[in-house]
């Protein structure tokens, strides 16, 4: 019998904890399908018997943000909905990833109009953008594979344990916000008090 190609016949293998963790994580991504519009239908098709996303370990769609680690935003995002999406995103446990499916979620797409946020990266950190209107299920699966690759290459254990290098301080997120009254910093309180802005 030829020696086992993985363990080399020794019966064990050595690796880093990070690598194992990331490997496990990447093959059991739990998507939270933020299905909003037409792209959500193709997202459903991704889970159907023909495309079968279960091959990638992501068939368990979780509609509760606490159980999910991958948000798939599929469809155009209106201003009214954006706050809900952000709130759901904030409730997801770290580490988490985000895919913007379709032209609308990526850039606003054909809906260049007052109601639509021109790309959900205006308020979400998006990892993978998928082009298409709607993208075919293959393309969404490809995005999922990109996320898997990203997860496998991430170096996270040191951060998690706190013993390795500290995670660098995040850059200031949005240093300045343009307001109608000029480059002023605004507070949420002022937001709803338009007269005193």
């Amino acid at each position: 019998m030829a020696p086992d190609p993985v363990t080399g016949g020794e019966g064990f293998l050595t690796t880093r904890v990070d690598a194992v963790l990331n490997w496990a994580r990447s093959n059991s991504l739990m998507p939270m399908p933020m299905g909003l519009a037409c792209c959500a239908i193709e997202l459903m098709a991704m889970a159907d018997p023909k495309y079968d996303v279960a091959r990638f370990g992501s068939e368990a769609m979780r509609f509760s943000p606490r159980q999910a680690d991958l948000m798939i935003v599929a469809g155009w995002v209106s201003y009214k909905m954006a706050h809900t999406i952000r709130r759901v995103w904030d409730q997801m446990a770290d580490p988490k990833w985000c895919i913007a499916v379709g032209a609308c979620a990526s850039t606003g797409g054909m809906h260049r109009c007052y109601g639509v946020v021109q790309g959900c990266d205006n308020f979400l950190p998006v990892d993978v953008y998928v082009s298409g209107c709607p993208p075919r299920p293959e393309a969404i699966i490809h995005a999922l594979m990109d996320i898997q690759e990203k997860v496998r290459n991430e170096y996270t254990a040191a951060d998690d344990s706190g013993s390795g290098d500290r995670r660098p301080e995040p850059a200031p997120l949005r240093p300045r916000v343009l307001t109608p009254g000029g480059d002023r910093v605004i507070s949420p309180v002022a937001l709803y008090d338009q007269e005193n802005l």
């Binding site: 201003y79 580490p95 988490k96 990833w97 985000c98 007052y114 946020v117 021109q118 790309g119 990266d121 205006n122 308020f123 979400l124 950190p125 998006v126 990892d127 995670r167 995040p170 850059a171 997120l173 949005r174 916000v177 343009l178 307001t179 109608p180 605004i186 507070s187 949420p188 937001l191």
Partner: peptide, 22 residues
């Protein structure tokens, strides 16, 4: 962070936040 009043933030130079920076 606070709310953003600008509906076309990206057009005005706002960069999306990378998830590792968040």
């Amino acid at each position: 962070a606070g709310l953003t009043l600008d509906p076309f933030a990206a057009a005005h130079g706002s960069k999306p936040v990378k998830s590792f920076q968040e």
